[in-house]
Amino acid sequence: MVRNLGTSIRLLVIFMVLIAGVYSLLVTGLAQLLFPAQANGSLIYRHGQVIGARMIGQSFTGARWFDSRPSAASYNAAASVASNYGPTNPALIKEVKTNLAAFLKENPGVKASQVPPSMVESSDSGLDPNITPAAAYLQAPRVARVNHMSLAAVRHIVAEHERGRFLGLYGSPHVNVLAMNLSLLAWLNRHHA
């Protein structure tokens, strides 16, 4: 057993050098060289300031923006978390009721039966950057009204950002909320500036 322990220690040290040293440095070096944007977090800059990361969701509550999904993490990207509500937990029903009421109030004319579950149920990561295209189109009339845009212009922005399934088979169609809101801002700057 003592012999085994000696061999174990020597091998562990060698593998730590290979894995924590060589492998880590090689992956970091090549990633920084070949894919610097992704490797550094796919950050988005505006006027020289970081305004977010491409795939990290952020909170949008103002009426002029497309809303993000409900988040148990309040979009804190340094502490991802889910609600972990079970399907028979009264807290889940309460959460959905509250979110639904808020969504219906903010988007007059929308019926509860039109609202996709993902828009009133919280995400897994608490940082979901996407909503379904249906959830975006439901918000389009309100976004158009508040920003004094034509409905067609808003719907055009949604359509531009729609992404389909992978290979037509996997995942769900989605739109990136931050990307849509950035397009919205760009449109407003072009037309109302």
Partner: peptide
């Protein structure tokens, strides 16, 4: 239980939109 509130469709609590049910 959510159908009473008018919410129909897949269970998306704790799921990401891009992955879907």
């Amino acid at each position: 239980l959510l159908a009473h509130l008018g919410i129909h469709g897949a269970n998306m609590e704790g799921k990401e939109v891009r992955f879907g049910p």
